[in-house]
């Protein structure tokens, strides 16, 4: 870890993220590996708030504040524009939230993945529309409280990784801030691959998850260790690799630390555990399919 990396500071301080913001941590870790030869796309979301108000910005790489549902085609447009000009040395990075990825941006992301345009798409998943004040998205987990699911979210979180895998894009991976080295390795790996790369990055949100401002990394680790959010990669839509053998803690260890789950009853917790176990078995099975 050279100190020169720190000087790059591609997510500059002074941004307007809430204290303890997991998303800011995620962006910082990603940008650090992307390096200065990057053009980034952000969309209206907390990323916009973090980006700063004119004339100052927290983004240390050229960044374009595009519209909500088009992070992917915007990035693809930039990538192709640069390619035409022979600028293969510049990588294009798209940041979008879970709303911009799982919901409104899903179609355009799918279009880009189908064309295999050369971009790295990082979905900063904080599991609800946080920037607009905590509304349910299709990335919100079951039973979670949001302002539009005051009784708890009745539906399960959408499996975006499977959707991506169904595009047979060269590389998709889950990552979370609690495992910064894993995350950064994945970004490095993605940088070396041409085509549409997708990182599903879980970023805890103290404001929306109703948690103290100091436990975002810890929650992120618990999400992995309880198997709520396993760390794995999918190559070409078929080669599944589990990157971290979880401790398989009971889901309570993760859920009960968060205010958005504090109303959960025992049966609901058991249901979450069943869902998690089932997904894990599926994932293990997929990972076992190739030698």
């Amino acid at each position: 870890m050279a100190s020169s990396v720190q000087e790059l500071n591609l997510l500059r301080p002074g941004h307007a993220a809430c204290a303890g913001c997991g998303l800011a941590i995620g962006m910082k870790l990603v940008l650090e590996v992307m390096g200065p030869r990057t053009v980034a796309v952000i969309v209206p979301s907390c990323e916009g708030a973090i980006g700063g108000v004119y004339p100052n910005t927290s983004y240390g790489v050229p960044t374009f504040h595009s519209a909500f549902e088009i992070a992917a085609p915007t990035a693809a447009g930039i990538a192709n524009g640069l390619k035409i000009q022979g600028r293969d040395d510049i990588q294009v990075l798209a940041f979008a939230g879970d709303g911009g990825t799982f919901d409104i941006g899903l179609q355009s992301l799918s279009g880009v993945a189908k064309n295999n345009d050369d971009i790295l798409y990082v979905c900063l998943d904080n599991e609800a529309y946080m920037n607009t004040g905590i509304q349910v998205s299709s990335a919100t987990p079951s039973y979670a409280w949001t302002n539009t699911t005051p009784e708890g979210n009745p539906r399960r979180k959408k499996n975006i990784m499977e959707i991506m895998a169904a595009h047979y894009n060269p590389y998709s991976a889950t990552a979370t801030i609690g495992y910064p080295r894993d995350l950064q390795q994945k970004i490095t790996k993605a940088k070396g691959i041409r085509g549409t790369k997708f990182i599903h990055l879980l970023v805890p949100c103290p404001t929306g998850w109703r948690t103290p401002s100091d436990i975002s990394p810890e929650l992120s680790i618990l999400a992995v260790e309880t198997n709520v959010f396993p760390l794995y990669e999918v190559e070409e839509g078929r080669k599944y690799t589990i990157n971290h053998e979880p401790r398989r803690l009971p889901v309570q260890a993760y859920l009960l630390k968060q205010g958005r789950f504090k109303h959960l009853g025992e049966e609901q917790i058991r249901q979450v555990q069943r869902d998690v176990d089932e997904e894990w078995e599926k994932l293990k099975h997929r990972a076992s399919l190739q030698g």
Binding site: F64, I70, A76, G77, I78, G81
Partner: peptide
Amino acid sequence: SAMASCIAASLT
């Protein structure tokens, strides 16, 4: 998306 891509590419 076509327009999004055009705008973005234009900015390069």
